[in-house]
């Protein structure tokens, strides 16, 4: 990406040639403040406005803790599945030629375009004991619908394109000369993958994992149909917020939202630190 290159001393002059900075900047900042910043600040206002006891009572209740565990656990599991299969799909799309490749490439983005509620009812119907997939799993004793497995499957659906779209361009840019060198020096194909390719695409893979994970933690529409929503068992954190709101417990809903946002922010920060370390090496 080339940033507009400043050219020596003419930079200040060049900057002032184009009109419209005040108008575009003013409109952007105004719209950003009205739509994003002021509404989001209500979370901070409401959280700081409530007492610590109240915050802990709702935010760290048994029911809430179970919901965080479920949301973060299934989001991590789904992001790991997506890291493996997203890498596989990206690999196949970049490296191999096969009929229908363009269609496959387009299909990968389906979760970005398909409304989450539609995905939710479709997955629930597929994995129900009478569904196309569920009828094969049911005799084996595998229960998907109304369990954490179902939640994870919904989050795999939602998160897959994040990993594929992160890894694909890096994989495509990877020069084959390094792989050739490794092969000529006697490395097996697997060694080349583990020691040469994987470290190169590591940061992108981690970004994809983080994006899929963050999306999974907050996901609502695709999950609530398949999860069954039993408090303490299959109730995800976003649903608990909705439940609190339906009981007009604004403070409770805000406390859970604040804790969720804080926790996902911490995870994302840890992942970007890990990336910095990987890139630094």
């Amino acid at each position: 990406m080339t940033k507009s290159a400043p050219r020596g001393s003419t930079r200040l002059l060049r900057r002032s040639v184009l009109p419209g900075f005040r108008l575009s900047m003013g409109f952007s900042l105004g719209w950003l403040t009205l739509i994003v910043l002021i509404p989001l600040s209500t979370i901070i206002l409401k959280t700081t406005g409530m007492g610590w006891d109240q915050f802990v009572a709702v935010g760290f209740s048994h029911r809430a803790l179970a919901a965080y565990r479920l949301s973060f656990g299934t989001a991590a599991a789904a992001a790991m599945v997506n890291a493996v299969f997203g890498l596989l799909v990206a690999w196949v799309l970049v490296r191999y030629r096969f009929p229908g490749k363009r269609v496959v490439g387009a299909i990968v983005d389906l979760p970005f375009a398909l409304p989450t509620a539609v995905a939710g009812i479709a997955l629930t119907t597929l994995y129900a004991p009478s569904g196309w997939i569920g009828r094969w799993l049911d005799p084996l004793g595998i229960k998907v619908v109304f369990t954490w497995v179902g939640i994870t499957i919904a989050l795999v659906f939602v998160g897959l394109p994040f990993v594929v779209r992160q890894v694909e361009p890096v994989l495509a840019d990877l020069g084959k000369d390094v792989e050739e060198a490794a092969a000529i020096l006697g490395a097996s194909r697997w060694q080349v993958f583990a020691r040469v390719i994987l470290p190169a695409i590591g940061p992108a893979l981690l970004t994809g994992f983080a994006l899929a994970f963050a999306r999974g933690v907050g996901e609502y529409g695709s999950v609530i149909f398949i999860s069954g929503n039993m408090p303490g068992k299959t109730e995800i954190a976003p649903l608990l917020i909705v439940t609190q709101l339906e009981q007009y417990n604004y403070a409770g809903a805000t406390a859970i939202a604040a804790i969720m946002m804080g926790a996902s922010f911490a995870v994302l920060l840890a992942i970007s630190l890990l990336q910095a370390i990987m890139r630094g090496r």
Binding site: L40, T42, G218, P238, L239, I241, T254, M261
Partner: peptide, 23 residues
């Protein structure tokens, strides 16, 4: 920023702003 906020929280903030007990 809106990409990293849960859809449910995106609704919640407007309830906190404009809801019956909101600001």
């Amino acid at each position: 920023l809106p990409f990293s906020v849960s859809p449910v929280v995106s609704g919640l903030i407007f309830v906190l702003l404009f809801g019956a007990q909101g600001l």
